[in-house]
Amino acid sequence: MTIHELITVILLVVGCFFFLAGTLGVLRFPDLFSRLHALTKADNLGLGFIAAGMAVYIASPWAALKIFFIWLFTLLASSTSCYLIARFQKEQEQTKNGKEGE
């Protein structure tokens, strides 16, 4: 096993660990906000590690750049959708509380 492959395996395993942690969080956390937190933070970090692992494995600067951009776009999209879901939920709760208060 070369040093390249070793680094790849370590990065992939770390990435899988974060994915597992994120999935566990989605399944176990009590409310929507903490679940969103688990999903968007841990999973994106995991994806980053897996992307880094693949970039090391392919070992070509062009491919590494492309993989980096994939990760960047995923980060942007997932953080935006996380924010939108959280905002929707907050508005729902506010209207619910407002109705109860009347």
Binding site: T80, Y83, L84
Partner: peptide, 11 residues
């Protein structure tokens, strides 16, 4: 939403 707008403008 300003944030959604920015992201759409970017994408």
């Amino acid at each position: 939403d300003p944030m959604l707008r920015q992201v759409i403008m970017f994408f």
